[in-house]
Amino acid sequence: MTDSPSNAGPAPQVGVRDLRVTFGRTIAVADVSVEVAPGVTGVLGPNGAGKTSLLRVLATDLRPQRGKVQFDGRPVDSRRTVRHYRRAVGFLPQRPDWHKWMTVREAVAYFAWLRAVPRNARSEAVGNSIEMVGLSRRAENRLGELSGGMFQRAMLATTLVHQPEVLILDEPTAGLDPVQRHQFREIVRLRPASSVTLISTHVFEDVTNLATNIVVMHDGRLPFTGTIREFTDQLNPDGGSSAEALEAAYLRFVGTDDVG
């Protein structure tokens, strides 16, 4: 296992306060407040629990009906603060899509420009990001020519190119084979210990291999936030903190009827 490098800079603080997201009469997120600590936090919950809506709000990809994102103790509620925050965030949506006629290098370079990577550092940043996800030999391939797993890794490279303080990943290992999933975990482990990484996933091995803390969403609410061990101990004191123990505790917590 590769140890996470230290980071001398201040640890970012990210969260939401009194967040409500609705789609018509459906309440996707119901008055949720949470602060995410530095390190890796897993976001768990059945389909329709509100996980994607929460992550999209945190990424400023979705405007809530009520509540605000907070970054470094300040609300992200003006053009200036949104611009500052977006430069600190990398976001990989659940079903990423991008212009398939672009090459891998062009797509990553565009996001480097979008996230204000300095011009004199942009080429190196793009190359490093592509190499990090194992696509150096595919850098000149068009996105439309890639397999599903390679495309997912290319999209991951676009989120990493500016070395974000806050990384938000929604189902990042969907479509990846076991080797690629292992490579993904190694990439996350290389992030600075002071950075924030949020991973929404149904793959319990990803959570137990990477995260210490978890957030469990259910019916748009957050019935549990804390460590993996605290969660498993709450439901099965002898369960431990393995992927199997986490999955068993999770199924007991949400009920099998809600899993789909």
Rank of each mutant, 00 (worst) to 15 (best):
D3W: 13
Y85F: 09
G45E: 05
P10M: 09
S123L: 02
G226P: 05
R153N: 04
T197C: 01
G260V: 14
L246Q: 01
R105F: 14
S53D: 10
A11K: 03
H99G: 09
E247M: 05
L169A: 02
E171D: 04
P223T: 11
F253E: 04
P192T: 00
G175P: 03
S123F: 10
A139F: 09
G226V: 08
H182C: 07
P192F: 00
F151N: 04
R181L: 05
P12S: 02
S33H: 01
I199K: 02
H162P: 10
E247N: 04
T158V: 06
E230P: 14
P237Q: 05
V126E: 05
I228N: 02
T81D: 05
F71W: 14
G239N: 12
D238A: 13
R138Y: 12
F231P: 04
W98D: 09
H202N: 00
D77K: 14
R25A: 15
V36R: 12
Q13A: 15
T52R: 08
R185G: 11
S195A: 07
L135W: 13
L198S: 00
T232V: 08
P10A: 11
L55K: 08
D257R: 02
S78Y: 02
A248C: 05
R25Y: 09
I199W: 01
S194W: 00
W101A: 15
V166S: 05
H218Y: 15
H99Q: 13
S241N: 08
A243G: 01
A109N: 06
L19N: 08
W113G: 12
A154W: 06
L246A: 03
P164S: 11
I228K: 03
Q234T: 11
D258L: 15
